[in-house]
Computed example of a mutant assay.
Amino acid sequence: MAGPHQTPASTADAPQLDEILLRVGKLNYTWSNTESLLIHLIAGLARIDKDTALIIFLTLNTTRARLDLVGRLAKMERTPEAERKDVLGVTERFSRISALRNKYNHCIYSFDADGGSPKTILMRISDRKDAIRYGKTDPINSAELETVDAAIEAIAELNREIWRLAQRHGYPI
């Protein structure tokens, strides 16, 4: 395993540490920026001002809780069908993308000193009927980085869609 400031020797398909960290940083930046747009959805659906929506957003300390709130507000009877469909569409897409984002935020990275492919090691316990599992590893190769790049683009498109939705339905901006 390479030290904190060392980059492992590369193989043809093994990305360098800097490549991985750059992608994960961009994934996190894009995600956080887009997640903050939920403030506008909360404000519009709850029919409150943006400052109040911001306090609610910051009080809920997980993405899941924020998405649940937005989804539940959209499902209220008073929400028109077209608006409900728009909001639930973006919250569903957000939820699907969250698995990849969570993987890279809740793992550690392993690098082979001999130049093998870097890996993620998931830092979560998985309870089974009569056993536990932990430390699931996945290689980080060029195909995986392409998956991260695709997720970044999907989040960026989601960002644009949330802005259009907020404008279309007259939410506080």
Results as ranks from 00 to 15, higher is better:
His5Gln: 14
Leu69Lys: 09
Ala2Tyr: 10
Leu69Cys: 03
Ala65Thr: 12
Leu37Cys: 06
Ala9Pro: 11
Thr34Pro: 06
Asp51Trp: 08
Asn61Phe: 10
Arg47Leu: 03
Ala2Ser: 14
Gly71Lys: 01
Ser10Asn: 10
Lys85Gln: 15
Ala82Thr: 08
Gln6Thr: 04
Gln16Asp: 12
Ile39Trp: 00
Ala74Trp: 00
Ala46Met: 02
Pro80Phe: 00
Met76Pro: 04
Thr62Ala: 10
Ile20Asp: 02
Arg72Tyr: 09
Leu45Arg: 09
Met76Trp: 08
Thr63Gly: 08
Ile56His: 07
Glu81Asn: 09
Phe57Lys: 08
Arg78Phe: 09
Leu67Met: 12
Ile20Ser: 05
Leu38Cys: 13
Thr62Pro: 08
Gly71Met: 03
Ala9Met: 11
Pro4Met: 07
Met1Ile: 04
Leu27Ser: 04
Ser10Lys: 15
Ala53Thr: 03
Leu60Val: 07
Glu81Gly: 01
Glu19Cys: 01
Ile56Ser: 04
Tyr29Glu: 12
Thr62Glu: 05
Thr63Lys: 08
Glu81Val: 10
Leu21Arg: 14
Pro8Leu: 05
Thr52Asn: 12
His40Met: 13
Glu77Ile: 05
Leu17Val: 04
Leu17Ser: 09
Asp68Gly: 02
Leu37Glu: 13
Thr59Ala: 12
Met76Asn: 13
Thr7Val: 12
Ala12His: 10
Arg23Gln: 07
Lys26Glu: 13
Leu41Phe: 02
Ile39Val: 10
Leu27Phe: 03
Leu73Thr: 03
Leu69Asp: 10
Lys26Trp: 09
Ala82Pro: 09
Ile48Trp: 06
Ser10Met: 11
Ile55Lys: 15
Ala46Trp: 02
Ala14Gln: 06
Leu69Ser: 06
Leu73Cys: 07
Pro15Trp: 06
Arg72Phe: 03
Arg47Ile: 02
Asp51Met: 14
Arg64Asp: 15
Leu37Val: 01
Phe57Pro: 03
Asn61Met: 13
Thr59Asn: 13
Ile56Tyr: 04
Ile39Phe: 00
Arg47Val: 04
Gly44His: 00
Leu73Gly: 04
Asp68Ser: 06
Pro4Ala: 06
Glu35Met: 01
Ile56Gly: 05
Pro8Ile: 01
Lys50Tyr: 10
Asp68Met: 12
Thr7Ile: 14
Ala12Gln: 13
Ala43Pro: 07
Met76Arg: 15
Leu54Lys: 12
Thr59Phe: 13
Ile39Tyr: 08
Gly71Gln: 06
Trp31Tyr: 14
Met76Gly: 09
Pro80Cys: 01
Leu27Gln: 01
Thr7Ala: 12
Ala2Ile: 13
Thr63Leu: 11
Arg47Pro: 01
Pro80Leu: 00
Ala43Ser: 13
Leu69Ile: 05
Pro80Gly: 05
Arg64Phe: 11
Ala14Ser: 08
Leu69Met: 12
Leu73Ser: 05
Leu58Thr: 11
Thr79Glu: 00
Asp18Glu: 12
Leu60Ser: 06
Arg47Trp: 01
Ile42His: 04
Ala12Gly: 12
Ile42Phe: 04
Asp49Ser: 11
Ser32Cys: 08
Leu27Arg: 03
Val70Ile: 02
Tyr29Ser: 00
Arg72Gly: 07
Gln6Phe: 11
Thr63Pro: 09
Thr63His: 13
Arg72Cys: 00
Thr59Arg: 14
Thr52Phe: 05
His40Asp: 14
Trp31Met: 02
Val70His: 00
Asn33Ala: 08
Ala65Glu: 15
Asp13Phe: 09
Trp31Leu: 01
Leu27Thr: 08
Met1Ser: 15
Gly71Trp: 02
